[in-house]
Amino acid sequence: MASQGTKRSYEQMETDGERQNATEIRASVGKMIDGIGRFYIQMCTELKLSDYEGRLIQNSLTIERMVLSAFDERRNKYLEEHPSAGKDPKKTGGPIYKRVDRKWMRELVLYDKEEIRRIWRQANNGDDATAGLTHMMIWHSNLNDTTYQRTRALVRTGMDPRMCSLMQGSTLPRRSGAAGAAVKGVGTMVMELIRMIKRGINDRNFWRGENGRKTRSAYERMCNILKGKFQTAAQRAMMDQVRESRNPGNAEIEDLIFLARSALILRGSVAHKSCLPACVYGPAVASGYDFEKEGYSLVGIDPFKLLQNSQVYSLIRPNENPAHKSQLVWMACNSAAFEDLRVLSFIRGTKVSPRGKLSTRGVQIASNENMDAMESSTLELRSRYWAIRTRSGGNTNQQRASAGQISVQPAFSVQRNLPFDKPTIMAAFTGNTEGRTSDMRAEIIRMMEGAKPEEMSFQGRGVFELSDERAANPIVPSFDMSNEGSYFFGDNAEEYDN
């Protein structure tokens, strides 16, 4: 993207840094990872977990959730003011799984939030270390993106479920800051804005008074975040219109849905970061690795190297396929839920299948599930090659597409044709070009129609051997075009429920 120079890199967003050079960025990201790792080690000690239990991804998720809940100030305040039966607002906890007599047992633990905050700050040299908290939120978000298709949420806001490739980060909490905003897809931002506008339509006082002023500035800020994701002048001009509207209503909703559809071809720039579970960072720190000293990046080879040398386990339900569970977590670790499966298959070195073909449910185990038949197995999170994460949407291309997802959002900077089903997408653009945004709409449609099938995206960008740390010898991959490109292809993934 041309304006790259004016933006802070995501590592800076990730670490609240002012302008830093590459070495400083690597050190501050490393410091953040160190903090998460030290916190995780301490929690495993508190909970008396064995090494194996500490490497269980379900335990990692519970521990991450506990610290996120302990620092969720708004919710904590709300819980104190609106006490609900049987919930102690000062405590947080969740299921911890232990191996007892050759069987997995679930144990519900409860801790004072104050105590968890103390352990977290102690692991982070006394700081609140917001960057580390956001990092864990993005890992949870990436896992949700890989596990669930947001059909219901899309339909509720009037969008087409086939636009799911635009929904990265749709389950990120509001408090995820600049680093969170960077990884949100165009569809996620559109959905947040539509929800806001709908509230304004239904509630006369939404934009009024002292609160209304705050609401208005939040609305304009979200519009600017979305505008910054678009790469064409016409899309940005249309966002200006939406932002400046005196009284946002149905016309703005129409414009936003139009823009979301246009992003299936004229893709937005959305950041991709490899955020790993805390149970990967903990053992690495415990083994003596100093992330701050060595430096770390979320968008280069580092996460690949770390996963190459990590042992992570997962509980497996009786009829689940461990290899499929591994694929789910591998995609989440690489922030690749909406990437082209052919690119992923090449990088991973084994075939990556669409969601609907995987015999696996989510990673988390519900409290009512029976533990008797639970097994555990090693997650295979290694890769054959590594590639640089991208934040450009890439230019655009036609490809055989599917009944489910009709476009992709690249996660890796790797040369390819970008699949999208042009006739299906263009069919949504018939007729409606009147109104105050008509010239911009016409211009956007013209650009979409001009998108050429034979153009290559990320020209000359390749993948790298894991021994090639400096990215000196790019390998331009070859793809098996007979395979499906979309992950949520004609899909039956479970729906995400809060």
Rank of each mutant, 00 (worst) to 15 (best):
R361I: 08
I444P: 01
E244Y: 02
A181T: 04
F489Y: 15
W104M: 03
Y10G: 01
M222V: 01
Y289W: 07
N334S: 10
E455A: 13
M447I: 15
F479N: 06
I425Y: 02
A493S: 01
R391K: 14
A178H: 09
I119Q: 11
A401T: 03
Y40T: 08
Q122S: 07
K422M: 13
V352R: 03
R75G: 07
L108W: 05
F346R: 09
I119W: 10
E114N: 14
S353M: 14
G35Y: 09
S359M: 00
D255I: 08
E73G: 06
L418F: 02
P354Q: 04
A22Y: 01
R355H: 10
V190Q: 07
F258R: 08
A123V: 12
E434C: 08
R267V: 00
L259E: 12
L256D: 00
E73K: 13
L341F: 07
A411D: 00
V100R: 11
F258S: 01
N397H: 12
K452G: 10
L418G: 00
L49Y: 15
I257Y: 03
E114G: 08
V285Q: 05
A263M: 13
D51L: 13
G86F: 01
Q398M: 01
T130R: 12
D240P: 00
A332Y: 06
F429W: 04
G490M: 07
A129I: 07
K90W: 04
N76D: 01
I445L: 11
A2G: 01
L49P: 11
I406R: 07
T424R: 01
C333A: 14
S467N: 11
A260Q: 03
Q149W: 11
I365T: 06
T134K: 00
Q58F: 07
I475Y: 12
F412Q: 04
I201P: 02
Y148S: 08
V29D: 13
M481C: 06
T157W: 06
G228S: 12
D128A: 14
A427E: 00
E339V: 11
T62Y: 08
A263I: 01
R38A: 09
K293M: 07
R175H: 04
N144F: 05
P89D: 03
E252Q: 04
T390I: 00
A411C: 15
T188K: 09
I475E: 00
E115C: 05
K422H: 05
G393N: 05
S9N: 15
N247A: 10
T171K: 04
L466V: 05
A260D: 12
C44G: 12
E434H: 11
